[in-house]
Amino acid sequence: MFDNLGLSEPQTWDEFLGVAAKIKDSGTTPFILGANAGWEPLFWFDYFILRVAGSDFRNGLMNGTESYLDPKVVQAMELWADLLDKGYFLDGFSSMDFQTMNSRFVKEDGAIQLMGAWTTRNLMKAGLTPDEDFGVFNFPTITDGLEPAVEGAVEGWSASGAGANTENALAMLKCVSGAKAQEHFAVMTNNPTANKDIPIEVYSEPTRNTVSKFYGMLDAPFHQNLELATHPGVTEIAKREFPRFLTYPDQYMAVLERLEDRRLKVFEQ
């Protein structure tokens, strides 16, 4: 679609808006976003915060030392609400989970989705080829001078220091994170591995450029997504309120007020 419309990967917010407008004018909805499980919209909020306010502020927000009513958070929500007001997102948020988002993307019901690296494999299973049928790009710059931080959901193994077999548990963790096991994972899944030392050549030819782009993004600070980065009490409100915001974007201040109320309650305990 980008090639057909003569579009290139947007680097700045103005370029991003220009891309969205041209896609909309062509008859396709620019963005696909579901909210069936509640966590899907959190990626958008996180990236808006990272691009408007930066990593340090976002860390403070997750740790409870920054306010959801801060002007920078309000600005982020206003930018997001503007996209919604322009009709840039597919309707039916509550009925779409991330798998449905992929299906709608494959059908070209929408042009762009914000999702984790695992989506690459799912799209390939659906018959799409990286760099031919789809590509990846980082969230564009909004505030000049901020590092292009990235975020995602990282779930890992852990070993109890008080376990009955801690020594072998640690040996297992060392094994699965080592180059040999991670290379096997890369060959099987064509997904980026946790071990960045895996040679790009082990990935199948169509995915190498995509994997390289993902690894290149990790040169900037990495953040755990909101669902796993902040107090569960705040996450509960976020997963309830952001899906509602997608339908009622004019109520963004009510969303922020509820988040702020919960932040004050859980972090002051």
Results as ranks from 00 to 15, higher is better:
137 F>Q: 07
241 E>P: 11
181 A>Y: 13
256 L>V: 08
162 A>Q: 13
185 F>S: 08
232 P>V: 11
242 F>S: 08
68 Y>P: 02
31 F>Y: 12
55 S>R: 05
211 V>R: 12
161 G>T: 15
127 G>T: 09
164 A>T: 12
251 Q>W: 05
243 P>N: 02
61 L>P: 05
47 Y>L: 09
14 D>T: 13
235 T>Q: 00
139 F>T: 01
174 K>M: 07
35 A>H: 00
58 R>G: 10
192 P>C: 03
240 R>D: 10
55 S>E: 11
60 G>R: 13
159 A>K: 07
170 L>I: 15
102 N>S: 10
152 G>F: 09
39 W>Q: 00
37 A>G: 07
23 I>G: 04
181 A>K: 03
157 W>G: 11
53 A>V: 09
170 L>M: 09
146 L>E: 13
92 G>D: 07
65 T>Y: 05
30 P>E: 06
219 D>P: 01
94 S>N: 02
123 L>K: 01
70 D>A: 14
106 V>M: 08
85 D>E: 15
145 G>S: 09
72 K>I: 00
236 E>L: 09
30 P>W: 00
187 V>L: 07
121 R>C: 04
98 F>T: 07
204 S>K: 14
230 T>S: 09
73 V>Q: 07
69 L>P: 01
201 E>T: 15
145 G>V: 04
6 G>I: 04
164 A>N: 10
187 V>T: 11
140 P>Y: 04
77 M>C: 11
27 G>T: 14
208 R>K: 06
8 S>P: 02
146 L>P: 03
14 D>A: 06
159 A>V: 15
150 V>F: 04
142 I>C: 04
77 M>T: 07
102 N>Q: 14
154 V>H: 00
132 E>T: 15
124 M>R: 12
4 N>D: 14
238 A>H: 13
23 I>R: 08
208 R>T: 14
6 G>W: 03
68 Y>R: 13
190 N>V: 00
201 E>K: 15
111 A>G: 06
154 V>W: 04
97 D>V: 01
61 L>S: 05
217 M>G: 00
